[in-house]
Design a protein around this nucleic acid. Sequence first.
DNA 1: TTGTATGCGTTATCAG
DNA 2: CTGATAACGCATACAA
Lengths: 341, 341
Amino acid sequence: MTKEIPNALLGDVARAAGVSTASVSRVLNGAPHVSQRLRERVEAAIDKLGYVPDGAARALASRRIGAIGVLVPTLDNPVFSAWIDSLEQRLKHHDCRLLIATYRYDLDDEFAALRTLIQQGVDGVVLLGHDHREESIDLLQRRRLPFLTCWHNVNDPDCPCVGFDNALPARQLVEHLLTLGHRRLAVISAPTRTNDRARARLNSFLKTAEQAGYPISPGNIITVEYGIAEGAEAFEELMTRPQPPTAILCGNDTLAFGVMLAAQRSNKKIPEDVSITGYDNLPQSPFMNPPLTTVAVPAQALGDLVADAIIARINGNPSPHHQQLEAPLVIRRSTGPSTSG
Amino acid sequence: MTKEIPNALLGDVARAAGVSTASVSRVLNGAPHVSQRLRERVEAAIDKLGYVPDGAARALASRRIGAIGVLVPTLDNPVFSAWIDSLEQRLKHHDCRLLIATYRYDLDDEFAALRTLIQQGVDGVVLLGHDHREESIDLLQRRRLPFLTCWHNVNDPDCPCVGFDNALPARQLVEHLLTLGHRRLAVISAPTRTNDRARARLNSFLKTAEQAGYPISPGNIITVEYGIAEGAEAFEELMTRPQPPTAILCGNDTLAFGVMLAAQRSNKKIPEDVSITGYDNLPQSPFMNPPLTTVAVPAQALGDLVADAIIARINGNPSPHHQQLEAPLVIRRSTGPSTSG
DNA sequence: TTGTATGCGTTATCAG
DNA sequence: CTGATAACGCATACAA
């Protein structure tokens, strides 16, 4: 038999404790200047009645909901779920929850999801990357809602940012390969249209190679969706070239996994026949055979930093407009000297 | 210069359109019996003022927030993020959003997160698995909040459930290995204390082997945390046994990946030297070398089904108390005949 | 089909 | 330190 008592309200608690609703509210919110006796009486009543405050009413009256919203392209990528994870944990320390929305790299969807979050009354918003609809930033500014962008390092006066340089490690990867004697490079990139991070990486690959005097031929630049299968297919396509590349730069580790697995399958030796690089440093990367040379994206540190920064903004504390983390190269054994004539 | 106009309210829209607040509300909620002319006037005013309804106020007045909450152990496991993804997409079709909370397999945290979700006023709740604190189910029942459990198939009168049988495919895996002539099996399991799915799989492995007359020796039963590295370490430990197993059953695909990579690293042939099985069928599994024999957990179908079921419950429509999906074996080349003397 | 008036459960501003 | 009471912004009976 379930009890037929309707859910207890704040007023019920007040009555049971013989105090005013204001006092109950004070106890609930840990306000100062409440006598020990009163607090105990109220807490007893709360326990006795199994009272749970109503978030909607509280949000309406106080104009905050104790949660921030994050807009992430997808949870499918482990590097994002790891980031979200640390973001959420760190926010918890600030007594703040996290509302997650995904938009599958569709910026119209991102805008729609942003409206939804604002409607929910989030106290702040975190956006990923620098590619957004103008309306999104407009909306945030007009509402004077604390927000932050991350995962990039564009110094845009309109967009506070906590991120890292996507281009620099990409350049270093190319330099690493050139040093090893590779001259025929290829790139497998994620779609770049609505993804400034992928774009920055790709452009940096291409520019560095070109400036070194070994431009990457258009036939060796492949764009595919995110996924193992996609990486594997791209590898097979590259191997049909009259002069296959001796080194392949992948826009992320997952594509690189696909490439490595396809290479093994077709009995190509890594790195003797072909060197391979990734970007992310997923937990799996050091365990590949051979271990994958890649870029250690600071996903977890970024989560902590973003959490602290958005909380600071919400509380009106000063927070740098532009913060940058390191994304160091991790050179492992998937890259080696070129052995081609 | 940002405009200093405070955010427009519903009343402002009404005034601008020359109608009552009730009419604006009707347009907003797509209520029937609104004339075309009025609707257009209101929509124009909304656009002009950039009006965004206040979710808190709306929730308070209507007693629903248009969102359900889901409690998931972690987003770290791709099989969960894929599930969440399809759940969210399908809910969107029902005009329902998803609030995600994680609890890292800590049932006290799960309870705390549940309270938070309820406080937020979610219209329904989805729990994963059958292991929960009694208080959690109590709370849901006392609040008469529509809820659902999933990923398991325990027929508990207290817990409506949409899931699949974790034990059956586990039994089939063991039978498959026995048929191939394997007699020395090993198991690498995820922690089972707060995870009924892992427990069901493990127990089914052990029981089936024992009943067939080839019990798995205690030294060949290893429990490790989720992760590639953990799988690799467990493999190495198993290989130190005087009589190493000829086949290894892994509680999930990620552990199996770790095992396979460690096996390759130590130059063990799969399946000639050791057969390996997983559980999940991650996107990567068919691309391993060799492709991984595993169980195809219906994550995506489960997302759709769970979405439809919880929506039905919220709307008071009949919904089966117990629904089950298939989780078929996928036999690939990581398992083969035993070649041990 | 449209408008009026009340209430949703808290917080916060006052007095005391 | 505590209590009364007016917001908070919208939805919804009810009336017209």
